[in-house]
Design a protein around this nucleic acid. Structure first.
Ligand SMILES: [Mn+2]
Ligand SMILES: [Mn+2]
Ligand SMILES: [Mn+2]
Ligand SMILES: [Mn+2]
Lengths: 218, 218
DNA sequence: TTTATAATTTAGACAAATCTAAAAATTAAA
DNA sequence: TTTAATTTTTAGATTTGTCTAAATTATAAA
């Protein structure tokens, strides 16, 4: 079994390894709000436990064992987020911090019963896929708004940023999961995106656009 | 805010102070599965935080502040137990350990929403009262089976022991919450109790009887 | 290819919570 | 009321996770 802290490291390494491989010490330090020296210490410990492959100065990769452990934490995090939104009426921008704590509760029975109680959800409130017990989940293959071509339409399926500020802002613009949008054009000046949403034209920054995941209409 | 560990100490001290006042170092050590020396260290820390009144060699009492904190943890513990039984179909002997972890999740919003979701329960699955937000709850004034007089009847309202072995045993005997029983007599030989339950006569040990809480029939 | 910059690791220290062994205080027994 | 037993506290160490400052290694620039 891993400690609360070890679990957090594993999860962060997992998320970062989607972006870069291997994962660098500083990247972890920044995400986990700690110093690089602390990260190094922990990487050695995780390597001792065979949860990561670690080579000095070269960064880390999760081992199969580490990856499974990480995905399991992600599974619990996302199931709890569904619970908070669906059952306790949390808003999608209120769930993350609480889920950060709930994800560490150690009880397989609890997770399986929760999954059943929630009727086996496939995605969390931010559109992220929920892995099954064995760590498998479909990669959903969405594209970001700023990757659409002019005049392409699609449905908002998820977000790649979980901060309250971001999520509240999205909601205010009516850009919630399930909404269909059409990209009119990307500005040549500031890369902002002009969208058609609910028969209205709105303009959103690239910062915003790049965190909104779209399923293209066929 | 208190740490996970501090919260556990506060809760144990609270439960023990019902039995004896002040609470002794060894009693805490036994309950918390640690050594007396560790308890002494923690008592000093809790005293520094004004959560307990502590005099060397004399034991501790909770301060008002400490008592409120303790009751709040008890409140969360019992609400989560209700959730596990009512919503996730846990049995009453399966909930305690998970609730021990869940009670430490820090979010007032979570607790209040959970309370609402559970429809403001007054007692937990073991019949223990759930304090309100301000720490108030009715003392329910139940008596233990071995305190009944011969031929007195009553309803099982709770238990004062939470171990799986105890609860499973009770259930096998049909002694669940809400059941009405009649005490026929206490044996002069071994203090065991003869009961009438469901038109059947059964005999239970004093060990069992003293942990079953009864509301007398008027 | 040397030099400068950035990233990473070591060394040494610290706080929280725990432990063992020994000392001190309290309580019970003689 | 002195002695013995019990309870509690101190002293000193250990583990986990963290930190700062200094030393290494790797990478980018000249
Ligand atoms: Mn989240
Ligand atoms: Mn999420
Ligand atoms: Mn319990
Ligand atoms: Mn209970």
């Amino acid at each position: 079994m891993q400690s609360y802290t070890e679990e957090n490291y594993l999860k962060i390494i997992y998320h970062l390894s989607v972006i870069s491989n291997p994962v660098q010490t500083n990247a972890i330090a920044e995400r986990i709000q700690t110093k690089a020296a602390s990260v190094t210490d922990m990487l050695k410990k995780l390597a001792d436990k065979a949860l990561v492959d670690y080579t000095k100065y070269q960064g880390v990769n999760l081992t199969q064992k580490g990856k499974l452990a990480a995905i399991n934490i992600v599974r619990r995090h996302r199931l709890w987020e569904v619970f908070l939104v669906e059952k306790l009426n949390f808003k999608w921008d209120e769930v993350h911090d609480v889920a950060e704590e709930l994800e560490h509760i150690k009880s397989n029975l609890l997770v399986e019963r929760l999954n059943e109680f929630l009727d086996f959800p496939k995605v969390d409130p931010h559109g992220d896929p929920i892995p099954d017990k064995d760590g498998n989940f479909e990669s959903l293959g969405f594209v970001k708004i700023n990757q659409l071509k002019d005049n392409e339409s699609g449905t908002i399926m998820g977000v790649s940023e979980h901060s309250t500020a971001f999520l509240k802002h999205l909601e205010k613009l009516g850009l919630i999961l399930g909404k269909t949008i059409k990209l009119i054009e990307i500005s040549a000046f500031d890369s902002s995106a002009e969208l058609l949403v609910d028969q209205q034209y709105i303009n959103i920054s690239k910062e915003l656009a790049k965190h909104i995941l779209i399923k293209k209409l066929v």
